[in-house]
């Protein structure tokens, strides 16, 4: 159900996208600035309900959010996703829902989400690589979708899979990871009101490089948990394998909660760099559970987060 989070801040209090016009374009001169405005996607507004979760956070520009992406299905470079994702066909799109659900099946995306109202959620986004953004997602709570398909009481986990289509997702022609990209959550994590399925950002349909047409967003976990371009959702009673843990279990764990006290073996997670600050941007401290500690710490009560990283 949309709108469970309420505050007194209105969407009109958020600085509009155009005012956040990328400073790099400003530096490149007025010509580039004009071009940037014209070249911006002329998408229809999704008309998402303007909830105000994330008040006080400074949004990243549309340009930053849509040009700096890890989406290895399109290549390992940060700009590969933007450069290569254009060829992905996202309509028609169907999602297979199976496992421990009352109504399994292959659903057309529109059918699966019809009648679910969209809501804006401004979330921090913290990559495991120690950079971060603030993104105004548009989506709905995953629990709404799960309620629709009927989760059976035996289910303990939710597993997700990304599309495999190497002729369009050219990064899948290389064995960077064991495709399809796989992710998973405990059922409690999946049912948490902060966990959303996003279909848009900046009140526009989500661009391909950000995981069109539908992706998961779990704001208290490292970004790779927020799987993109989902085609399969499976309810299960066993912990599903997840791609990065399969690739390197020493470095990536099933939970992957943002935690400044547990380092990645190759770098510290104590600090992060906010994208958009340019060449001299300062690191800032990383927050426990990415700043969502009061909402989600209860999910992990009594758990050793150093072992269950």
């Amino acid at each position: 159900m949309a709108g469970r989070y309420k505050s007194d801040l209105k969407w009109s209090d958020v600085t509009p996208k155009r005012d956040y016009m990328n400073r790099r374009q400003l530096m490149a001169g007025a010509g580039a600035l004009a071009l940037g405005s014209i070249a911006g996607p002329a998408m229809a507004s999704l008309g998402a309900r303007k909830s105000n979760y994330g008040r006080g956070l400074e949004l990243n520009t549309y340009e930053d959010i849509t040009s700096y992406n890890n989406f290895y299905e399109f290549g390992t470079g940060k700009d590969d996703a933007k450069n290569n994702a254009g060829r992905l066909t996202t309509d028609p799109w169907s999602i297979t829902v199976d496992g421990m659900v009352d109504k399994p099946g292959k659903y057309d995306l529109d059918d699966l989400t019809s009648g679910i109202s969209l809501e804006e959620r401004i979330y921090r986004f913290r990559c495991v690589e120690a950079w971060s953004m603030v993104v105004p997602w548009v989506g709905f709570e995953l629990s709404d979708l799960l309620a629709r398909v009927g989760v059976q009481s035996s289910a303990k986990y939710v597993a997700f899979e990304t599309l495999v289509r190497p002729d369009e997702m050219i990064g899948q022609r290389r064995p960077v990871l064991d495709w399809p990209y796989r992710e998973g959550l405990t059922l409690n994590e999946a049912m948490h009101p902060l966990t959303i399925m996003a279909t848009g950002l900046y009140d526009e349909p989500i661009p391909n490089q950000n995981g069109a047409p539908i992706r998961l967003v779990v704001p208290w976990k490292y970004g790779f948990k927020s799987i993109k371009s989902i085609v399969r959702i499976t309810l299960t009673d066993t912990r599903p394998p997840i791609s990065w843990e399969m690739a390197n279990p020493r470095e990536y764990g099933f939970f992957s909660n943002v935690n400044p006290n547990v380092d990645h073996p190759r770098w510290s997670q104590a600090t992060e760099r906010k994208i958009g600050g340019g060449l001299f941007s300062k690191r800032v401290p990383t927050l426990m559970f990415n700043g969502y500690e009061s909402e989600v710490a209860g999910l992990y009560a009594g758990m050793d987060l150093t072992k269950n990283f």
């Binding site: 490149a28 700096y68 940060k78 700009d79 950079w131 060449l279």
Partner: peptide
């Protein structure tokens, strides 16, 4: 490039 946006949204790692 890093100073003028040619290295993308995060120029430090790129440089």
């Amino acid at each position: 490039q890093g100073l003028t946006g040619g290295l993308g949204a995060e120029p430090i790692k790129a440089l």
